[in-house]
Computed example of a mutant assay.
Amino acid sequence: MNTREVAEIPTGPVPVPSVVAELAKGDDITPVWENELGGLTFRLDARIGGSRYVKWVAHGTPEIDLAAEADRLAWASRWVRVPRVLGQGSNAEGSWLVTAPVPGRSAVDTRWLADPATAATAIGHGLRVLHDALPVAECPYTWSVADRLARADERIADGEGPGDWFPEHRHLTVAEARGLLDDAPPVDRLVVCHGDACAPNTLLHDDGTFAAHVDLGSLGVADRWADLAVAAWSTEWNHGPGYDHLVYAAYGVEPDPERIAYYRLLWDLA
């Protein structure tokens, strides 16, 4: 099974890490998300009103760096609406990030799963807002092809292969896939990319307009197609086929098949 397809809202009991219980200080704890690497997000609801969110990941999960995400959120918050950081820390069991809530519902909330065209449009528009607002010249973070290829090589060395990839790429051998990634297309437009522009990380207002972004742990400078290709692809995973064109249209760009194919393969391997 492709373990990259199991990020979801938990449907069964979720063990609460001890630090999350300590941070709650008696507030109600509700698990709201589990990603494909085992990272958990909880909502803490105070009995007198108000809520906070806690992301937690076990120690030794290199793909998730919550300290780096806290830094990126603080930087990006000067220009765009993202969660405000309330605290961050780590211990021998894992690391955590506490943030304030932001208005909106995820594009994979049941409301927007029932209205995929609105969700896809908001995803595309929200990505354009992010790319236009964040200043490349002032960004201290990168999400470069070179860095991501290094990660792809690490995963290949660890034994990952076609069985771990999405169906679109499973016909390739490891050598074929890695060879295709050596031929990166020229950069179309450098922007500060979200880094994980999948549908769940866009929030919508109740009127269907874009509200905010969450989960910016990989934010950094890259070609805008590194975000666009995956944002549109993710509508297929979450809303079904036939809505990717709405992402591109709302962003204001025509689909670029070469860059879409390249950055989807890079996403899969890296």
Rank of each mutant, 00 (worst) to 15 (best):
N2F: 02
T3V: 03
E5S: 12
A7V: 00
T11S: 12
P17F: 01
A24H: 08
D27V: 05
P31A: 07
V32C: 02
G38L: 02
G39N: 08
L40Q: 06
F42W: 01
D45G: 02
S51A: 13
S51Q: 12
Y53S: 02
V54T: 00
V57Q: 10
T61C: 13
T61N: 15
I64D: 10
D65T: 13
A70E: 03
D71S: 15
D71R: 13
L73N: 02
A76S: 14
S77E: 12
S77H: 08
V80Q: 08
V80G: 07
V80L: 07
G87Y: 09
G87I: 05
Q88N: 08
A92W: 12
W96Q: 04
V98E: 04
P101R: 10
P103Q: 02
P103R: 04
P103E: 08
P103T: 11
P103S: 03
R105M: 04
R105Y: 00
W112S: 04
D115T: 11
A117N: 06
A117Y: 05
A117S: 15
T121A: 11
G124P: 01
G124L: 01
H125T: 12
V129A: 14
V129F: 13
L130Y: 12
L130S: 14
H131N: 10
A137R: 15
E138V: 06
Y141K: 01
S144K: 09
A146M: 01
D147Q: 14
R148V: 03
D153K: 14
R155C: 07
I156K: 11
A157Q: 12
E160W: 09
E160V: 04
E160L: 14
G163E: 05
P167I: 02
E168T: 11
R170K: 13
V174N: 00
A175N: 10
A175H: 14
E176F: 10
R178W: 04
L181Q: 01
D182A: 15
D182L: 15
D183A: 12
A184I: 06
P186T: 02
D188S: 11
H194K: 03
H194P: 11
A197V: 07
C198H: 04
C198L: 10
A199N: 06
T202E: 05
T202N: 03
L203W: 09
L203I: 00
D207F: 08
D207H: 02
A212Q: 10
H213G: 01
V214E: 00
L216D: 00
G217H: 03
L219R: 07
G220S: 15
V221E: 04
R224W: 11
A226L: 07
A226C: 13
A229Y: 04
V230T: 14
A231T: 06
E236M: 11
N238G: 08
G240S: 07
G242A: 07
H245E: 01
L246N: 02
Y251P: 03
G252D: 02
V253E: 06
E254R: 14
P255F: 03
P257R: 04
E258Y: 03
R259W: 07
I260K: 09
A261N: 13
A261C: 06
A261F: 09
Y262E: 04
Y262R: 06
L265Q: 04
L266N: 08
D268M: 02
